[in-house]
Design a protein around this nucleic acid. Structure first.
Lengths: 123, 123, 123, 123
DNA sequence: GTGGTCTAGACCACG
DNA sequence: GTGGTCTAGACCACC
């Protein structure tokens, strides 16, 4: 389910966050479904539990999962709201991009920005 | 200097704007250098003078050129300001992109947005 | 009567305590009225009996309820306790208000909050 | 500037966050002012650098500070963030007030609290 | 020097 | 068993 790419320059915890994010927003992980425990996933991926903890904390911060002490981490149930907000963000992005374009910023420069943020080298 | 691609879906005036923009920001056209007259360029490109006029108007609006009645159109001397503002816009764009990324919007969706705005099909 | 919110970060036993405290302080549960048995409530809420026990123990410690071995738990009859608990809540409120003040939130905004909650229009 | 209370049940990193948040929100720390380095503050407070790092990360996440690799952490210059954080504090206050109201604490007593903290005599 | 990531191991609170 | 916090120490990238 989760694969770590050590060739990837991004930190491990970020890879885990992104992977879970996609799985949750895709609907692959259903609301209230329990995630692997911090320790179990740490063992499975052969990495430190603190790294998993950090990833889960960020996912909780983003509202994608919720944690219950003594029980575990679970997929948040309000994913509709998330998708709604994403669409709003994309709409804002379009406006911003339109301004960039009208200000004479070239396509390639915008693309570099996107790649820079998303840490993607190739498209 | 200016080439029109009729295969290109974008309107002609936009192609002209973009081309001059690049030439000016690149420094190919130096400050206070005179641009071809509206009518001359219209004849050279075999297109309507109104189209050139529209392009020049937009370039003036963007602060890239300035026009002097009875004399012609000239490259604006304050290109530093332009680049500065562009950098500010890119910085804002980076912030926005970061928010998008952290909100779980996938790389591909952002890319679609960029392509949509910039009317580019392939990268 | 009691609802558990697993999204809430507070531990379950604390949620139960708070809920009962409110019900007792505002008089919804009358003095000497019997509370649900530990086991019954545990089954009803589908949680561990130890958790209910812990909540009841804390409520007894606060003097809000008293337990009789072999019979059950009952609402305390002493009104002094009520005022004591209310004073604790006010103390917490003072702390929160202090933070608000130190964070530069103006008096008038806090006042609006109070009026909003208490549905009072004029002072 | 920063004091840790080991009697306080809250985690150390949270105490640090709250303290800095107050200092930034009320303007005691001016925009673009540099914060103590992670390691320096760790030594000063005799706690682990990771704990400071965590606090700074959260402050950056809230937009209250920004970090520059190799240079340090600095107070954010965006005032929007300040209002946002203040609104969050007010939201917490509303929750607390709701509990007070539900616990049968009268309007006038809450009002006295507010006046007491804000040192206002009349409304 | 600075921030940022990761590890190994510990302790606590919760259920 | 679970998550959450903290420590000590390491390594990297940046300036």
């Amino acid at each position: 389910m989760i694969v770590i790419d050590y060739q990837d320059k991004r930190p491990i915890y970020e890879q885990i966050i992104d992977r879970f994010q996609i799985l949750i927003l895709n609907g692959a992980l259903e609301p209230d479904m329990q995630l692997p425990s911090v320790r179990a996933l740490a063992v499975e991926l052969s990495i430190n539990a603190n790294t998993i903890q950090r990833a889960y904390s960020e996912l909780e911060h983003r509202g994608l999962i919720y944690s219950v002490k003594g029980r575990g981490n679970f997929v948040s149930a309000q994913q509709d709201v998330v998708k709604e907000q994403q669409e709003k963000l994309l709409e804002e992005l379009r406006t911003q991009l339109q301004v960039c374009k009208e200000s004479g910023i070239e396509f390639i420069h915008v693309l570099d920005c996107v790649r820079e943020i998303y840490q993607e080298v190739k498209v």
